[in-house]
Amino acid sequence: MSVVLHFAQHTLQEVALFVMAVVYLLRLRWLLSFKPGRDRQRPTGGGEGRSGGLYSLGTIAMPWVMESTRTNPFFYAQFVVFHLAATAAILLSFVIPYAPGLLEVRPVTGLFQLFIGMGFLVGCLRLVRRVTQRTMRALSSPDDYFSLILLTVWLASAFLAAPNDPAGGEGALLAFFFLTAFFLLYVPFSKISHYLYYPFTRYYLGRTLGHRGVFPPRRGPSVSSSI
């Protein structure tokens, strides 16, 4: 392994991770510096904020509860594949430097490549959707396009790097690790950091609607619980 590749796999990643973690902590501190709104009224419909919040967090795994996911199963499947692929690629960035032996098991490498490859295809589909649909174009900012392209290219590089064969040429590995480092540094400033806010948005929406008896949905009322 060359010095450059070793640097890219270790020092560069560690520094990038550290920077990302620091920026994330600052972002969280900033978000938490805003006072949370509170519900002073008694709950309605037998509702309860905490259970509403938990239900809301769980909707990610319940595509049938939201009309937008229920009526777009293909889009939901894309969402699942894309996010699993991103997770696999992140995992790969740790497996290669710290547990390379895992990738010597061919089915494991194959599994990584399957997930990441499908994620790449979804990335391409999403890019086409964002470019061709009028509404999506109207919504999109340069960051939206760049983040999507960055992720899709990064997944392609992860697909090529997954066999972890520096002897066969370090190009794919170097591309993957340099892209990973850039990705880690860019993410906190981009829309890709949405996963940091996801628990907050979903929990707060769920807590509010839970307190008002909307989440989780119910069937069959009880008069005493409806006051």
Partner: peptide, 19 residues
Amino acid sequence: NRQFVASLVGCVHCGMCTN
């Protein structure tokens, strides 16, 4: 407030709300 801020930073422009 925190709820508003989370909602303001949280949108990924996925377009799922459109229809």
